[in-house]
Computed example of a mutant assay.
Amino acid sequence: MWITYGLTAGVVLGLYDYWTKKGMDGNGVMAVVFWSSFFGAAAWLIAFLPVSYGSGFHVDPGATNLKQQLFILFKGLMMTGSWIFAYYSVRELPMSFSGAMRASGPLWTFLGGALIFGEILTPLQFCAVLASVIAYFLLSQIGKKEGISITCSTPILMMLVATLLSAMTTVYDKWLVQVLELKPNDIQAWSALHRCLLAGIIMWFFCRGGRSPMMPNWSFWIPLIGLAWVGAEWVYFLAIQDPNANVTYLSIFRRVSLIVGFLLSVLLIGESNVGRKSIVILILLISTITLILHA
């Protein structure tokens, strides 16, 4: 089931990527980061109330001590930083390229999983991981034909930073659940509140004095961003609760989001160079299927 959960999280993240692109249209990054975080936190508030008791979503406010809260806060710091860098990139780049810059994510996750959890892939499995990384790289190379330089583009570098932070969070989540033995609901609910608070502080710092508006041009895309992330994270945590779950595989499965986002971009935004990009994404799909069949 952890494979199914991982793929489902990837599909939801594809919607999240598309909604982020739409929500960023004409808006400042910090305003979107805060308000999407706000709606994500609001979705978890009911879990702290007695009405949620026995529902499977309930969170006991007194169940985590200060040390555990600090561990969860560190997750929130990494995620908030990842969002800020990623949103700047998504605002400036076509969806296919902002997704392609996550190419190094599975490798970083692989290194983390190997070093921390001893997750070693077979030669065939490693080739599938490598093929997916190469596919993302080739997709990014197509960007040169569209005037996007990997080495000289600030949005590209921002997405690389966001990818590294996201990969660290992927490994850290499994450590919180399987080593520190924190309840997934506690991690997600408190982290959502932490992210909202952190994003609010950062937004105030960057937007004070009228340098940037704290209120975005309002659209229903913004709450959808926050709710989609909560949904994807919920499904992802169902996956990593399984002791057999491999964080390297999960990192690859979550990259299914690129396929979903690319299709939505082609149909609704007007992505260019569709033929060449489709071939590269097909390579990615084959590598993902290979991992599923040999999991």
Rank of each mutant, 00 (worst) to 15 (best):
C207D: 11
S52W: 03
S132V: 15
G10Q: 07
V260Q: 01
L165V: 13
F71M: 08
L258P: 13
M95C: 04
A86M: 14
A9G: 13
L15C: 09
V247T: 15
T4H: 06
S287I: 05
V256G: 07
L157C: 04
S104F: 12
F262E: 00
Q188I: 15
F57E: 00
E92R: 02
I142F: 11
L107T: 14
K145I: 08
L182T: 12
L198N: 06
F74E: 00
V161S: 08
P223I: 01
V274R: 12
S52D: 04
S257L: 00
F57D: 00
F117W: 07
W19P: 02
H294N: 13
A41Q: 10
S37Y: 10
D25P: 07
A189D: 13
K277G: 10
I142S: 08
H294P: 00
W229L: 09
T170N: 04
L160M: 13
P184M: 00
K174V: 05
C127E: 09
T154D: 01
V90M: 09
W234L: 06
A114S: 10
S219I: 11
M203P: 05
T288M: 11
L193C: 15
G105M: 10
P123Q: 00
W19Y: 13
S278G: 03
G76N: 07
E119Y: 08
S132F: 09
F34G: 04
L93E: 02
K183H: 14
F71H: 09
P213C: 00
L293F: 13
L115T: 15
D173I: 09
I222S: 08
T20C: 09
T170L: 05
M95K: 05
G200L: 04
L157R: 14
V12H: 02
G112C: 06
T163R: 01
F97Y: 15
T151R: 12
